[in-house]
Design a protein around this nucleic acid. Structure first.
Lengths: 186, 186
DNA sequence: CGCTAAGTGGAAACGGACTCCGATTCCAGA
DNA sequence: TCTGGAATCGGAGTCCGTTTCCACTTAGCG
C-alpha cells in the first residue's frame, strides 16, 4: 500500500521555506496576513503554496504545529514537579498565545471540529501530556476530582479568544478560572 | 448643533425592513448570511442596505441591539430576587446565544474594541443592570468580593466563543466558571 | 402642481482566496 | 553523460462576497 514517494528535493525545500515564512509572518501580524505576501516572502509563487497546503487554514495549522509541540514539551518537563502543574501550564499557554498572534487563530480553528476528527499527532501528544499534569495535580489534592482533559482544552479555547481581544485581561480570566478548578473546600 | 433631520418616511420604513430581515436571517443561520440575500429578503437593493448601515458589522450589531435590551430586562426582573442572580443571568445569556446564531458574532465584534469606545446605550444599560445583580449577589454572600462588571463581560465573551463552537460544552464551561466566582471559603 | 434634495437599486469595482495550465526542473535509467 | 517524462513551479485568471457609485425615482415643502 505504500505508494508514498519521496518528494522531490526542491519541493521539500520550497515547502520548508513557505512554512518558515508563514511562521514568521503569522507570529508577527496574526493570521490575517495574505497568502500572496507569504508566497513572496518565501520566494515562491502562490500556486506553490497551494500545492503544499490545501488552503489557508491548513497553512495556519501547520505553522502552529511546532508551537504545540513546544508546549507539550513544557508540560512534560515543567508541570509535573512540585506545586500546581495545571496553573503553570495555563499561564505558559497564555504567554505563548500572547507572543504569537497567529497561534490563537490555529487554536480557534481547531475548536468547532472538536474531538472526533483525525487531528494531527500534535493534538494527541498534548492530550496525553495534559492528562498527566491533571493526574499529578489531582494526586496532590490541588485539583477538583472531575476536571477532564476536555475541560482544559475548552478553557484554552476561551483563553485564546481572550488573548485575541488584545485587552490584556487574560491573566484575570485565568485567575477566575483557576479558582473554579481547585477542589471544593466543603 | 442639532443639524439632525427627520428622515423621510419611506427611508425609515426601509431601514426597519432591512433590520427585520437581518434579525431573522442572522438568528437562523448566523452572521455568514450574505448582504444581497438580506437585501432581497427585505425587498430592497443592496445600495439601500448600505445607505442605512455603513458596513456588514454595523448591521450585525444593530440586529443584536434588541436582544441586548431583552437581556437587560431579564437581568432587572429575574436576577434580583432570591437565590444566585449572576448564575441565572449567565445561564440565560448562554441560552439566548445558543438560540440566536448571529448574536455571538455581535458579541465577538463588541470585544476587542472594549470599554473606551462610545458603544451604544444597549451596552451602558447592560452594564448598570449587571452591576446591580453583582451588588445583590455580593450582599447575599453568594459572590466573591472582587468580581467586577468587567469580569462578567469578559466571561460572556468567552461563553459566546464556546457557544459558537457548537459543541454544547457551554454549560460545563459555566459550571467551572461559576465555581470560580463564589466567595473563597477559607 | 412643480422643484429639489433625500433616497433607491443594481451594475460595476474591488479584494482576497483559490484554480489552472504552459513552462520549468529534477532524477531514474540507458 | 544524456534524456524522457513525471513532478513541480508560478502567476494570470476565476470566483465570490463586500462595498462604492451614480443615474434615476419619489417624498414632501412651498
Amino acid at each position: 500500500m505504500s505508494t508514498e514517494r519521496r518528494p522531490r528535493a526542491d519541493a521539500e525545500r520550497n515547502r520548508a521555506r513557505v512554512l518558515e515564512a508563514a511562521r514568521t509572518l503569522f507570529a508577527e501580524r496574526g493570521d490575517e496576513v495574505q497568502l500572496p505576501e507569504i508566497a513572496r516572502a518565501a520566494g515562491v509563487g502562490v500556486g506553490t503554496v497551494y500545492r503544499h497546503f490545501p488552503d489557508r487554514r491548513a497553512l495556519v495549522e501547520a505553522a502552529a504545529e511546532q508551537r504545540f509541540a513546544e508546549i507539550e514539551r513544557y508540560a512534560r518537563t515543567r508541570c509535573l514537579g512540585e506545586g500546581p502543574g495545571l496553573e503553570r501550564y495555563l499561564r505558559h499557554v497564555g504567554n505563548v498565545l500572547a507572543r504569537d498572534r497567529g497561534l490563537s487563530a490555529a487554536v480557534e480553528a481547531a475548536r468547532g471540529s472538536a474531538g472526533s476528527e483525525p487531528r494531527g499527532d500534535a493534538r494527541a501528544g498534548l492530550e496525553s501530556a495534559v492528562a498527566q499534569v491533571l493526574d499529578h495535580d489531582r494526586a496532590a489534592g490541588l485539583l477538583r476530582e472531575d476536571c477532564t482533559v476536555g475541560d482544559v482544552f475548552l478553557l484554552v479555547g476561551c483563553l485564546s479568544s481572550v488573548v485575541r481581544t488584545g485587552s490584556g485581561d487574560w491573566r484575570r480570566f485565568l485567575d477566575l478560572v483557576l479558582d473554579g478548578l481547585r477542589p471544593r473546600t466543603a
